[in-house]
């Protein structure tokens, strides 16, 4: 069985946020609700200041703590290794948002950071959060996967573009966006990445490109000590470390 995973090459990533934008458009997310984000870290002061960045999708962990804490099993892991939310089962308790070590989950019912409130500009009929002018076709939306325009009062997150990936021909090892036949099945962030810093494929297949990269370029996972075992790997190259600290502090005076 395929187990989908992603590799992000930090030596190639330029921090351009095209992945963030593509994800927003593909999945009709609200402003600030970034399933895929690029985080920025700055250290030191002029003239030795340093800026670094880290693209951060959902890690689709092997042992996801969000799945374990969800009291209704609305959050679940598919057979092909993707962590999804069943919007028809989520009660909006937000425990998964507490339990995710990577902060990748979102709750739309909050004060909007940008004005005007886009939900009121494009109001939805019925139970949906909003009705954006651009959205994926109705037949591709699936609330059982947490894909499409979401209902109110439920949690949302990156799905690895499951509406695309799940349709890939059986036996596909690598979803390479350079292959026109496979492009429609490849996650939007991978397709749009200009420097081709993202790779997507089967982590369980030794011949897959993602496996080769992890093995030959020392693929690293974030916060491995949590035991969540992400299925997103980073290639840091010659960089001394991935800026994986979640803290915003720069140090405390002794």
């Amino acid at each position: 069985m395929t187990r989908w995973g992603m590799v992000i090459d930090l030596e190639k990533c330029t921090g351009c946020q095209a992945c963030t934008t593509a994800c927003q458009m593909e999945n009709a997310r609200l402003p600030g609700e970034m399933w895929q984000d690029v985080l920025f870290y700055s250290e030191g002061e002029y003239p030795s200041g340093k800026l670094s960045w880290l693209p951060r999708p959902c890690m689709h962990c092997e042992n996801p703590s969000c799945v374990a804490v969800c009291p209704t099993r609305a959050t679940y892991k598919t057979e092909d290794g993707v962590v999804l939310i069943d919007w028809e089962r989520c009660i909006g308790c937000k425990y998964c948002m507490i339990a995710c070590p990577y902060g990748v989950r979102f709750y739309a019912e909050e004060k909007q950071k940008t004005q005007p409130d886009i939900r009121k500009v494009f109001p939805a009929k019925g139970d949906k959060v909003w009705d954006p002018p651009y959205k994926m076709p109705e037949h591709m939306q699936n609330p059982k996967w947490g894909v499409g325009i979401q209902p109110k009062n439920v949690v949302s997150k990156c799905t690895f573009c499951y509406h695309r990936v799940s349709q890939a021909p059986k036996g596909t090892v690598d979803l390479n966006p350079d292959d026109p036949k496979l492009r429609p099945y490849t996650p939007a962030c991978v397709v749009t990445c200009a420097p081709s810093a993202r790779y997507f494929g089967d982590l369980d297949n030794p011949s897959s490109e993602v496996r080769q990269l992890i093995a030959t370029k020392r693929g690293t996972r974030l916060l491995d000590q949590t035991g969540n075992r992400p299925q997103v790997y980073y290639l840091a190259g010659e960089a001394p470390a991935i800026p994986e600290t979640r803290s915003v502090r720069s140090g405390r005076k002794a």
Partner: peptide
């Protein structure tokens, strides 16, 4: 328990 954000980068505060 939630004051320090989870993976929001240095600029998030």
């Amino acid at each position: 328990g939630q004051k320090v954000p989870l993976f929001k980068g240095y600029w998030a505060g």
